[in-house]
Simulated scan of single mutants.
Amino acid sequence: MSDRVLEVDSVDAGYGDVQVLDDLSMHLQSEEIVCLVGPNGAGKSTVLKTVFGLLTPWEGSVRFRGEEISGAEPPDLVRKGMGYVPQVDNVFGSMTIDENLRMGGVSRESGLEETMDELYDRFDILDDKRRAKASTLSGGQRQVLAFARALMTEPDVLLIDEPSAGLAPNIVQDVFQNVQTVNELGTAILMVEQNAVEGLDISDRGYVLDQGTVRFEDDADALLDNPEVGQLYLGG
């Protein structure tokens, strides 16, 4: 399994004395999109926080490109090639778009300007507003900025938490298109998404979580076609 860039193996984790993840295992392969779906409280966002070092597993293992990273600090993981786009507070509203991107690349030693130019070319909505404060952007534009800022370190893996949360339905498809654009740049994506059908529709594989553990795992198309998954978790 040399193409596995991220492996979560038999992980228990939680907050204080409250266990959320229970013997949870999953993996992410190079250049694929994997979507985590399931009911509220299933532990989806907790998976991302545990992978990104915001929580330390109680038991089990998290490996990034074969290296054990359980307990590693987020800045160290960014330097190793991992990015994270949280659901809220994912841009600096008082800073311009240009300043946000520079903050995203603060750990880089070289190539900052070149990467910024590439991202402005890729996301032209940002190019048109370089000097605008992030607080003036629409919800969809903020998500684009959050993606671009996370890409400033050219990560191998990007963790995205609920990219469509709070957005108008007519904006959601644009956001998912941007997720695919990020993936086409060569970045593997592990995404939590409450809009399960839409999230799985752009994904290669998916995991259905319930009560902190994996209930189903399969190719995304197979999960969408699974009547049990549809009835219990997809509103089908």
Rank of each mutant, 00 (worst) to 15 (best):
Y84H: 10
S25W: 06
M116V: 07
I202F: 03
R131E: 15
M26Q: 05
V175M: 08
E118S: 11
Q180L: 14
G93L: 14
P86R: 05
P169N: 11
L28A: 08
D23N: 15
D161G: 02
E118Y: 07
Q177T: 14
G14Q: 10
L234C: 10
G53L: 04
Q141W: 02
L167R: 12
E118R: 15
K49L: 02
V18D: 10
V214T: 11
D89T: 12
G166E: 09
T153G: 03
S45W: 02
E217W: 08
G140T: 11
L151H: 04
E154H: 05
L36K: 01
S135P: 04
A148S: 12
D221I: 11
I189N: 02
P86V: 10
M1L: 10
V229R: 04
N170G: 00
Y233T: 13
A132R: 15
L185N: 06
N90F: 00
G140R: 01
I69R: 06
Y120E: 06
F216L: 14
E73Q: 14
D98I: 00
G53T: 06
M103F: 13
F147V: 11
R102G: 06
V5T: 02
E228P: 05
E99F: 07
K80E: 14
E217K: 08
T46G: 12
D121F: 01
P39H: 07
V106A: 13
A196G: 11
A150F: 02
T56A: 14
G93K: 08
A42R: 02
D12E: 11
M191P: 08
N170I: 15
D76L: 11
R79E: 15
D219Y: 07
E154W: 01
D76G: 06
S70K: 03
G235W: 04
S135Q: 15
A146R: 11
G236D: 13
D225C: 07
E32S: 13
G235E: 06
Q141S: 03
F52N: 03
G236A: 15
Q29N: 15
G104A: 09
G186M: 10
L21H: 07
V5N: 07
S164M: 08
L48R: 03
T115N: 12
